[in-house]
């Protein structure tokens, strides 16, 4: 019985909340990148104003640094996305 309810709940979540949650996480991810640039920008050559304070945050972001750097390299600007490619239109 519980599993049926569980399945139904998952189904409803999939129909309604899933998209919202995914979207929220996407925005969260984008904000994370911005946050990393303004605090750890020095790591990719963007000077950060008070390095003394940004160093204080460093221990907490150690695990994210690799992913963030990769994300920054692969990051595409709006006009670089396929749907805005003029040649393909």
């Amino acid at each position: 019985m519980t599993s049926r309810w569980g399945a139904l709940r998952d189904l409803l979540y999939g129909m309604t909340g899933y998209e919202f949650a995914r979207h929220a996480m996407q925005i969260r991810h984008e904000l994370e990148s911005v946050f990393m640039v303004v605090t750890m920008g020095d790591l990719i050559g963007v000077p950060v104003l008070p390095p003394y304070y940004s160093l204080r945050l460093l221990p907490y972001v150690v695990p994210q640094i690799e992913t963030w750097k990769r994300h920054m390299v692969r990051r595409k600007e709006l006009w670089e996305k396929p749907e805005y490619d003029l040649l393909e239109m």
Binding site: M25, R28, L31, V34, F35, V38, L49
Partner: peptide
């Protein structure tokens, strides 16, 4: 200047937290 910097990034972090919260509530 530091005052403005820190106020802005704290706000940014709070925004991030809100999206976390939103996703967690949905799930």
């Amino acid at each position: 200047v530091y005052d403005e910097w820190i106020t802005k990034i704290t706000k940014l972090r709070e925004d991030m937290r809100q999206y976390d919260q939103m996703a967690a509530t949905m799930r």
